[in-house]
């Protein structure tokens, strides 16, 4: 993105455009780790998120088929449902999972790709991710891709045709926040597609920092679902994303290792 093309003072934020559709919320949320479907619904609503990620999993054969379904509480009529490839360790599994996800959502093309390399760290396997991204883009998917915070990998994913790149802030579910703001800045500077921080956000300030760096959005799950009061944290995140975005658009003062008084020297009583 061009850091020189920030809108004029007072102009409303144009919103987040992904694959030709514009959203007013820059907070994207996952739907996992909640106590139950009601908490999922309430936290999602409090977050103001318009895009929700879901996992695609085998039905439990023999389980009550009339048990409430996730899509009953976060319906595709109200939200943009983003199927993910959580738990996939190969490009083949990720591609297969998203083909099933697309069928489940009646041909909906927007998808989140993640291909993991390691069960302990859940760090992305970038070679497999690139392979999967290429195949999925060819198959007509609009791919939002979880990736390492490596500017070269991000650029290659963009060249492949991914509609958004989503570098991790830190390990999935770790709550460690943004560990390398410099890498993130490099990615943001060069990207012509939206850049969303995905993974590792812990609290509101992490989300605000991501937006202050110039991110187009933030995706999080554990930070909200794992908080002691998820509904309250969802609200906090909503505010943090808005505050961070406003601060970014406002243009902050530079950091200088020097003092600068806020009151004039002239006219002081002596």
């Amino acid at each position: 993105m061009d850091l020189n093309s920030i809108p004029e003072t007072g102009q409303a934020d144009a919103g987040l455009t992904i694959a030709g559709k514009t959203y007013s919320s820059r907070l994207l949320v996952g739907s996992g780790k909640y106590r139950d479907l009601e908490q999922t619904r309430a936290a999602t609503e409090a977050s103001g998120a318009e895009i929700i990620t879901v996992a695609i999993r085998r039905v439990n054969i023999g389980q009550d088929p009339n048990a409430p379904n996730l899509l009953d509480v976060v319906p595709p009529t109200r939200y943009t449902i983003l199927p993910n490839t959580a738990g996939c360790y190969t490009a083949a599994d990720a591609i297969y999972t998203l083909q099933l996800g697309r069928e489940l959502l009646n041909g909906h093309k927007l998808a989140k790709l993640e291909v993991l390399g390691d069960e302990r760290t859940l760090f992305p396997n970038m070679p497999e991710t690139l392979k999967a991204a290429e195949a999925l883009v060819k198959d007509g998917f609009d791919v939002m891709v979880y990736c390492s915070d490596d500017p070269i990998q991000a650029r290659i994913l963009e060249e492949i045709g991914c509609v958004a790149v989503m570098p991790l802030a830190s390990l999935i579910g770790s709550g460690m926040g943004i560990l390398n703001p410099w890498n993130l800045s490099l990615i943001i500077e060069q990207a012509k597609v939206p850049v969303l921080v995905d993974a590792g956000v812990g609290t509101a300030s992490d989300a605000a920092i991501a937006m202050e760096l110039g991110c187009d959005g933030v995706l999080m799950n554990t930070a909200i679902a794992g908080a002691q009061d998820p509904i309250r944290m969802a609200r906090a995140m909503r505010l943090a994303i808005e505050a961070g975005r406003e601060a970014f658009l406002a243009g902050r003062i530079p950091k200088r290792f020097a003092a600068s008084p806020s009151s004039p020297m002239a006219g002081r009583v002596k």
Partner: peptide, 10 residues
């Protein structure tokens, strides 16, 4: 045969 549905996930 795989029969799948959407469930909560990040």
């Amino acid at each position: 045969v795989d029969v799948v549905r959407a469930i909560g996930g990040g």
